[in-house]
Amino acid sequence: MEELFSTTYPVAQADYVTAGKASADIKRRLKQLGVGGDVLRRVAVASYEVELNLVIHSLGGELTLTVFPDAVQLVSADVGPGIRDLAMAMREGYSTANEEARSLGFGAGMGLPNMKRNADEFDIQSEYGKGTTITMRFRLS
């Protein structure tokens, strides 16, 4: 279906101070477009977790928001390092986060399962040595 709006946010590795700004902006834009309630909250939560993962675990990447008439799509794509054991990474409680991430209240290993729970469609592709791409869709009804 034809897209109504699309924007991409670069997300830098280990930039803990501005981490979350893209998600805050995504939430604001969706609100302006009239998206609210439960869908807005689910997009916001998933977006924040996926953005933090780019900061904490990736070598850098970008987050793209695309709005369709019937859905919101978030795509996180990074340039590495990729996930060695995807099944493990999807498990609640599994985390390789460092001390700094933990001191900020992240690194509980709940991000990926929480994204999956909040999105209507969740897809993760990862190749170790290359990078990770996560696509999430949220239906607007």
Binding site: G20, G109, M110, N114
Partner: peptide
């Protein structure tokens, strides 16, 4: 644990915490 809060809170509520970072 902000990830925890993000995982189970689904209403406009009150958060009590000892962390004071921007997150």
């Amino acid at each position: 644990l902000m990830s925890d809060v993000l995982a189970f809170v689904d209403e406009k509520t009150v958060l009590i915490t000892g962390l004071t970072n921007p997150h």
